[in-house]
């Protein structure tokens, strides 16, 4: 949520949610207020109804990809820029399978090791005439594929100045995310864990801090293993989730795409609905009074304070 929106929700201790377009605070009344219809994500001038950004790599077939896309409800899809295969004259571009759908295209700069390389890939991608969004992805290590913060910073700055809508894939470092935002990122995309590992959110605490500080949408990207990770990210206050491998490599990618869609919606709704604080000990769901067995003295328990999470 942008700072200007934080005021009317200042009574809440929740992290702020960037990119909100809700008409009224969902915290003020019943869950109907938080229905998906009013809860859009503003990103790069687009009004997105789905908070699921789907990657298109490693699907078993173009048909499965297409069906998974339908099941996901995703409005933004990512892909990579690679050299054309000269041995084939058939169009093997991923785009031919998805062009009939109304989608926003988010090419990434994967393969880039430096800001220069990322800028070059971004310009090539833009020349394809499919918009000016770019996911800056600059790997600093081939084994972990973790992003190089310095090069990511440089590329974000240059591409934002060059008129791109820059979504920066980054480490889950709150200060770095803030710096990327200041450099012109339209959204920051902290990774939950290294790309393709499925390890989930290794540092939910940091992700929470990033969300709290951000004035741009925070999109949790990379490392998501299953829908529960996606739901967790949304409950932490992420504006959206980007996932690829956990869908593409699932036994049934189409069903998994739907599961992710539901989890992301559930996580989002839960975030808006406001979860209970965590407590160390139990508190009964029904009041003690009127108990059949007449225990009139309440048990002595330590003060049950909420645990920050």
């Amino acid at each position: 949520m942008a700072k200007h929106e934080s005021e009317r929700l200042s009574k809440q201790s929740e992290p702020q949610l960037p990119g909100e377009t809700r008409n009224s605070s969902p915290f003020s009344s019943g869950p109907a207020q938080a229905s998906a219809g009013q809860d859009c994500l503003l990103l790069g001038g687009q009004r997105l109804h789905s908070r699921f950004l789907m990657g298109t790599g490693r699907f078993p077939s173009p048909w499965v990809l297409q069906e998974a896309l339908k099941a996901s409800g995703a409005e933004v899809i990512t892909f990579a820029v690679r050299r054309v295969n000269m041995d084939s004259v058939e169009d093997d571009s991923v785009l031919q399978h998805v062009t009939e759908r109304q989608l926003t295209y988010l090419p990434n700069t994967s393969g880039a090791k430096t800001a220069d390389e990322a800028v070059r890939i971004a310009r090539l991608a833009r020349a394809a005439g499919l918009g000016n969004w770019i996911k800056v992805e600059i790997s600093g290590n081939p084994r972990t594929l973790l992003p190089d913060p310095f090069e990511t910073m440089k590329a974000t700055e240059r591409l934002a100045k060059d008129g791109f809508v820059v979504l920066s894939y980054t480490s889950d470092d709150p200060i770095l995310c803030k710096r990327l935002e200041e450099a012109g990122a339209a959204a920051v995309m902290p990774g939950g864990s290294p790309i393709g590992t499925g390890l989930g959110l290794l540092n939910p605490y940091n992700l929470g801090l990033i969300v709290e500080e951000a004035n741009v949408p925070v999109i949790v990207d990379a490392g998501i293993g299953s829908p529960k990770d996606a739901a967790e990210a949304m409950e932490l206050g992420a504006a959206a989730v980007l996932a690829n491998t956990p869908i593409a490599k699932a036994t049934d990618p189409v069903a998994m795409a739907r599961a992710f869609r539901l989890a992301i919606e559930a996580g989002r709704l839960a975030k808006l609905a406001g979860r209970i604080p965590k407590k160390r000990y139990a508190s009964a769901s029904s009041s003690e009074s009127g108990s059949l067995f007449g225990a009139s003295i309440p048990p002595k328990i330590p003060p049950a304070e909420g645990i920050a999470w």
Partner: peptide, 10 residues
Amino acid sequence: LELVHFVGGG
């Protein structure tokens, strides 16, 4: 000369 296109990616 580089000739590039889009492939699946995340």
